[in-house]
Amino acid sequence: MKINSSSVQLINISADEAGQRLDNFLFARLKGVPKNLIYRIIRKGKVRVNKGRVKFKYKLVAADIVRLPPVRVAQRKMIQVLTKLDKFMLPANCILFEDEYLLVLNKPSGIAVHGGSKLNFGIIEALRALRPEARFLELVHRLDRDTSGVLLIAKKRSILRLLHQQLRLKNMQKNYLALVRGQWPSHYKVIEAPLLKNILHGGTRVVKVNNIGKPSKTHFQVKERFLQATLIKVSPITGRTHQIRVHTLHAGCPIAGDNRYGDREFNLQLQGIGLYRLFLHANTLRFKHPYFGTNISIEAPLDNQLQYCLQTLHKTSLCL
């Protein structure tokens, strides 16, 4: 199956689309097209703005006319994402909130939020394919592939800018639930440990606590203690890559089901009671509606696997 645009397209830039760079506009418009191909057609002058050649950094202006050449790209991987997302979209609790400006999903574990170096498609690309009539759909924030929970999507560029402003000013509160190994130390209510990205020989990205890394801060609160594990509420103040997973490891209590930073023996033990995924869930998101100005609080329920894990811990000798 192919995504195929067999003819030249002329796109009139609206006021809502103005202000963004040409390459970012094309990433959203040419869904599924590899980024290197997009940069290539810009360099070769196949993409024109007002009949002239421009660079990828050009910022679009209202009433600009963008010429797009015919584009063709394979879509095999997207079919898999669409199939997963279509099944995921069926339950009533999948869409947690929606209006003319916002869409909030309860993202499942195991699906990336966007395409990357090894993934052509993620939830945002699949969602655009499922809603071809939508003029604009963009992620406000991100979640790790294996993390589930509240995912906020903007339906207008002006709304996206306002929500990003709330993020920058730390006016958006995100809370997670995590099950960690052992007894969470009572004195670890806040962890401020700088984080540095590292790339291993195999290409796997890992993050480590390092004094030359970026400042990172996370709040922790114990929700429930078990004999060999603790359920904690986690509130990240900064938003670094793998921040929660690395800060819990730094405290000596890695997250259950974490195959990168976790404890293999602990993970195998929990597989025995049905946990085969990372126990990290973005359960609440609080922010101000960017259009109406009202306070919004969204809560995403735990999936069946996480609920069953906690129920089993309550019933077994693992519970205190």
Rank of each mutant, 00 (worst) to 15 (best):
I3R: 08
S7L: 07
D16N: 15
E17K: 10
G19A: 12
R21D: 12
N24H: 11
P34C: 05
K35Y: 06
K35W: 03
L37H: 11
K44C: 01
V49K: 06
N50A: 10
K55Q: 14
K57N: 15
V61I: 15
L68D: 13
P69M: 02
P70N: 07
V73A: 12
V73Q: 02
K84V: 01
F88H: 07
F88N: 03
L96N: 11
E100F: 04
L105N: 03
N106W: 00
K107Y: 01
A112E: 06
A112T: 14
V113R: 01
V113W: 00
I123N: 03
L137Y: 09
L137N: 04
V140D: 03
R142H: 11
D144I: 05
R145T: 10
T147M: 04
G149L: 10
L151F: 10
K156R: 15
K156W: 12
Q166T: 05
V180L: 02
R181V: 10
P185A: 11
P185R: 11
S186Y: 13
K189P: 01
I191P: 00
L195E: 04
L196H: 14
K197P: 11
L200M: 13
G203I: 01
T204D: 12
R205M: 10
R205L: 09
R205E: 14
V207R: 02
S216D: 11
T218K: 07
F226H: 00
A229Y: 01
T230E: 09
V234T: 02
T238Y: 13
V246G: 00
H250G: 03
C253D: 11
C253Y: 08
I255K: 10
A256F: 07
Q269W: 15
Q271E: 15
L278P: 08
F279V: 04
A282F: 05
N283L: 05
F287T: 06
G293H: 08
P301W: 13
N304F: 10
Q305D: 09
Q311Y: 05
T312Y: 07
